[in-house]
Write a protein that binds this DNA or RNA. Structure first.
Lengths: 153, 153
DNA sequence: TCATATTAGTTGCGAGTACAACTAATGTCA
DNA sequence: TGACATTAGTTGTACTCGCAACTAATATGA
């Protein structure tokens, strides 16, 4: 992909460089998501923990870290706040005393169901710009990139 | 794109949701880039300013903010450090006393030429996973998404 | 030409993040 | 069994960021 390579002068063309495009997009998505969840008293990390637990109830902190671009320290602090706010509930594992499973409380679930559609609206308008085939290709390609670019943590 | 929609239960499937995939990818790119430039005494913001000025010498701070997912305060601080380190040079505009143009010094340019290939290597290995057509489509689609999802700042 | 609005850039400060050190529980293997 | 390594999760700390307030220069328009 020549778009990814510098021109003759050895200078990186930012707007033709896909890692840079992804960085810009991710920043815009994060700002919009932050704005939405902040209106309900959450920061972005707390929202991500909530969403990860909603997706698969019973996830442990380590599992949240694995599916999420967050440090385990951040997950720990976000979890504590969500527990204090009564949005999350924690159950110590019977099998392994080190870990505990996270679940949404009823109020956590209702907050999640209030927020998730708004967060999805960020992308739904954008998706209209792409036809179905393009969208399909995009997610497939992104999934491949995620697979090929492993996490260094 | 059904992949972007929640399943019947109203729960967002993170790994099928492209904004989330982009967030994960951007995080991995940022961590790797940070690691590379930190070894040369820069943080990520400082590197971004350096790269933006290298791409188009004479850019002002506001122009750097426009092409970059950074707050003007962050750009201001990053610029000051780069000026102090002798990597950047500033020229007050003759036409408008409020703005000044930024240029790389010789040592700034040589640092840029040392770092840029390493930063590019982050993606070049990854690109091998995609054939040329896929890569072409990816950048085109991303450019479209960037266009359609405007910056809120 | 003067009052008002806008823009470029800086700075203060509260909040959030990264990284590493730490505790406690479990796994490994002689 | 017992020494040692690994893993889950927490916490301390320095750094970074986001936002808004601020200064100074330019634009606007009666």
């Amino acid at each position: 992909m020549n778009d990814d390579l510098p021109d003759g002068s050895g200078v990186l063309r930012l707007d033709h460089y896909w890692p840079y495009q992804i960085t810009v997009l991710a920043d815009r998505i994060a700002r919009r998501t932050t704005r939405i969840v902040k209106a309900h008293g959450l920061n972005l990390s707390q929202w991500r923990v909530l969403a990860a637990v909603a997706e698969l109830p019973g996830r442990t902190s380590v599992e949240v870290v694995r599916v999420t671009p967050m440090d385990k320290g951040i997950v720990s602090r976000a979890t504590r706040v969500l527990l204090e706010q009564g949005l999350l509930r924690r159950e110590a594992s019977q099998l392994d005393g080190r870990l505990s499973h996270l679940f949404l409380t009823p109020s956590g679930l209702s907050l999640y169901h209030a927020l998730a559609p708004q967060v999805q609206d960020i992308s739904s308008g954008v998706c209209d710009a792409l036809d179905a085939a393009e969208q399909q290709r995009l997610t497939a390609t992104l999934r491949e990139l995620v697979r090929v670019l492993p996490d260094l943590r």
